[in-house]
Amino acid sequence: MTAADQTPGASLWRDAWRRLSRNRLAVASGVAFILVTLLCVVGPFVTSYTANHADLKSSYQPPSTNHWFGTDHLGRDLFVRTLSGGRISLAVGILATAVSLVIGVAWGSIAGYFGGRLDSVMMRFVDILYSLPFVIMVILLMVWFERNFLLLFAAIGLVEWLTMARIVRGQVVSLKNTEFVEAARALGYSRLRIIFRHLLPNVIGPVIIYATLTVPAVMLLEAVLSFLGLGVQAPMSSWGLLINEGAEKIDVYPWLLAFPAVFFSLTLFSLNFIGDGLRDALDPKSSKD
């Protein structure tokens, strides 16, 4: 490749997009993730059943042309329940991760770059939050937020950012004394410019990897909380809850576990591959051209 082949004005993001679009696994994962998301958003509107429509006469039906994914103990259609549960799981996972990403990256990079006493105070605050029992925190938050589940999971993001802050701080500390940052200071760049243009793009690899791991972690956490009666409540559902219910009856009615689990795993895998692809795409050194 010669430099002249490239379109003028290409930025880091445009170059990254070009590299990402050449990564077949990442593209396939991206398509799969978008399909799952679309299905979850649109699907419940176009089927003839609703998520909470119970029909006790047809409980525990195996998959058929009538009920594609079968039915559960109340005769509710599992296809609709899987899709509407997916809405909640995806919303929860993405919302909590976005919150943790914003707080964690800002907190970690400020603590890491400014260092000194500010760093000590900020990171001790993180340590204290770490040491609080998670479930008690959630119960406290739930009391504040009065069982609005979206707000609750934004609150989970408020807890999940701790590890992100530590990762970002560690990276920033190791980078801030490198010569390119010193060169930036010598060139008179402002602190914000140095953090956002020079440091953060260089820590983006681990951040993206951790973010793609946070999404499924939050989805699983949601299942645990819902199981404890702290999260999503019946008749609403989520992948975590459906998997939980299905796992109890795996030997008799395997489809109750299989369908939600397939959707959940598909989402996890595609997120992981998208994360890997993004990390490589954002690293100019990884380009082979």
Binding site: T178, E182, A183, N202, K285
Partner: peptide
């Protein structure tokens, strides 16, 4: 007043193109 460092690998931001590297100081 400017400075040139010892390690030309560590003293450049790997995520900026040559153009961005050279025009950024002018921009600032």
């Amino acid at each position: 007043m400017q400075i040139i460092f010892q390690d030309p690998y560590a003293s450049l931001n790997a995520r900026l193109t040559l153009e961005q590297t050279i025009t950024e100081p002018m921009h600032v």
